[in-house]
């Protein structure tokens, strides 16, 4: 009953980020899951960087490119020099709902990031769990910048 070959074959995608302006966000499908890509404002980045690690529920970066022990600093959840982009699997680590916060009108929760309406989990602007039942930070998939404005996920 494990994933068959056709499911596994669709394992990586390429995304063009050029049309996404500062403050905007897009959601793309990868392996049947939504991936959140937000072009963060300077203010949002500052908020995430300034958060002391002791305030975090989950201390691990949850970045698939880094070891499990990497601390959940803002830098460890983004790419160096590309801190304005945050790329995460948009699935609440509690029970798998899609958090709100991608579109302008959405509630972004108490920490200006994302808010899961199912059971009330609040994520900050770096996708780290701050309040609510979810146990882990949103997962950062392995991705790389193939050019200045496009990434490959997977």
């Amino acid at each position: 009953m494990n994933p068959d070959a056709s499911t596994q074959a669709l394992a990586s995608i390429e995304v063009d980020l050029a049309p996404v302006a500062v403050g905007q966000a897009i959601t793309v499908m990868w392996r049947g899951k939504p991936v959140f890509i937000r072009h963060r404002t300077a203010e949002e980045i500052k908020k995430a960087v300034d958060t002391p690690l002791s305030d975090l529920v989950d201390p691990s970066a949850r970045n698939d490119a880094l070891p499990e022990s990497a601390p959940a600093t803002d830098l460890n959840r983004t790419k160096k020099g590309k801190e304005n982009w945050i790329v995460m699997v948009g699935i609440c680590t509690h029970l798998g709902c899609i958090p709100k916060g991608q579109s302008i009108a959405d509630s972004k929760g108490d920490f200006g990031g994302w808010f899961c309406p199912c059971h009330g989990s609040h994520y900050d602007t770096a996708g780290r769990i701050r309040k609510g039942p979810a146990p882990r930070n949103l997962e950062v998939p392995t991705y790389e910048f193939v050019s200045d404005t496009s990434i490959r996920i997977g």
Binding site: P3, R31, H94, L95, G96
Partner: peptide, 24 residues
């Protein structure tokens, strides 16, 4: 996703139940 709460094997069990990386 309730099954993903099981320590260590939770994620693999969920994937096995789904037959994919998400419900499909």
């Amino acid at each position: 996703n309730l099954f993903s709460a099981i320590p260590l094997v939770g994620e693999s069990i969920t994937r096995w139940l789904w037959g994919g990386f998400a419900v499909s």
